[in-house]
Design a protein around this nucleic acid. Structure first.
Lengths: 224, 224
DNA sequence: ACCGTAGACCTACGCTGTAGGTTTTGTCCA
DNA sequence: TGGACAAAACCTACAGCGTAGGTCTACGGT
């Protein structure tokens, strides 16, 4: 992390040493956010990671908030969205998969993307990709936007669940699941108690697949 | 807000004056969160609103984080979920409507509910209600949980969009819409540009209705 | 009349983001 | 070659945050 040595040096960086840059700052911030959680991301923490004074960051980033925006942009820029083939189901699955992969790669940063509604610039790439899919699949323009928003709502909600549940619930955590099942049974709510075994676990792959199939069916039904 | 007068009085409250209580604290916190935004909700701010020292809050609330939990519980407790009738579409609409009403009533607190995954206790009420609906509609238990999660994902995503977009985009803000449309056209992304008029506005009622219809159709198709 | 304690207030600490100022260094032009 | 300028680092300082730990006072029970 800290590549500098010796006592802190004031003034402009010397030619030899790697200068601070927005890119390096955002990378460090993402790493720190993934390691500690976004709410624990502090300017001083990022700076320390880079072996730099906190205030130096402000030469490249307007504010902590702007840094969080930069992180969401970086995550969105990392999406690898395939070109549409014309097969609605395959294309929707591809786009959804790209979102999910990104969310899994940066689970804690992903909450930023899902939470903050990003001012247009960086969010437009994914929008374009989804609209392209819907267009190729034959959606008329107006309906395509509705479909886009419905699909996005599903994706946001699904990924939020997966990302905030963490790797727990996945099936491996058997004792945790049993613990939860007992609690659910004891809740006194009849349907919750009856469904306790199913509620106590959550296989994210399976859940995503189920929802995705429903989404695809709904989109196909509404294609026009 | 502040009902006390005179100089601050130390010690146990006197019989006449309304004592501090968890309930009053949560109410004040919700009001403040709605007025200023959750991230600006501070213990000192809540205390000032109540005419009280910040540290007094800790006699009733374990921490700021616990206060946020209490707010989400209060929002969830405010849901008015109707008993299921057996008509899947009507029941799903009723439940979804209840969620949306609550989100509209406390838009900024609602983001808390959507963001934090609440430890079981308070979230179980809504879960029970949805499971009841699905059970009455004939879903087998396992599928009901999948359907529950899919429906919840859609709801969370939809309400997140509506709540974080604020009252803008609603159609009244004509000049803002025109501004956005121009920007979208200038984005250089062909499908975005083509869909600019539709992307620039977002009628939340219409959007919710569209998605809800798709959700109902998807649930009906999967009922088994 | 006394005392225990609930519930208020106060002090203080280590953080936070960041405004404003200082110093060093590279770059460019005369 | 030198001197002005700008960039980019560092430093100081401040107001505000959550909250640990301590203090005081009036009520309720004996």
């Amino acid at each position: 992390m800290d590549t500098r040595t010796g006592p802190p040096r004031r003034g402009r960086p010397r030619r030899g040493q790697e200068p601070l840059s927005r890119r390096r700052i955002v990378d460090a911030a993402m790493a720190l956010a993934e390691a500690e959680g976004v709410e624990r991301l502090t300017m001083r923490g990022v700076a320390k990671h880079l072996g730099v004074d906190a205030m130096s960051l402000y030469n490249h980033v307007a504010s902590r908030d702007a840094l969080l925006d930069a992180i969401t942009e970086a995550v969105l820029a990392g999406l690898r969205l395939p070109a549409p083939s014309g097969d609605l189901e395959a294309d929707v699955r591809a786009v959804a998969g790209a979102f999910r992969s990104a969310a899994q790669q940066y689970p804690r940063c992903a909450t930023l993307v899902l939470t903050r509604q990003l001012g247009a610039p960086a969010a437009l790439g994914p929008t374009e990709a989804v609209l392209a899919v819907l267009d190729r699949a034959g959606f008329p323009p107006g309906r395509a936007v509705h479909a886009l928003r419905t699909a996005l709502a599903f994706l946001v909600g699904s990924l939020m669940r997966e990302v905030s549940a963490g790797p727990a619930f996945s099936g491996a955590d058997v004792e945790g699941a049993q613990q939860r099942e007992v609690e659910l049974r004891a809740s006194g709510l009849p349907h919750v108690a009856a469904a306790a075994p199913d509620l106590a676990v959550c296989d994210h792959d399976e859940e995503f697949e189920f929802g995705l199939a429903a989404l695809v069916a709904a989109l196909e039904a509404v294609r026009g």
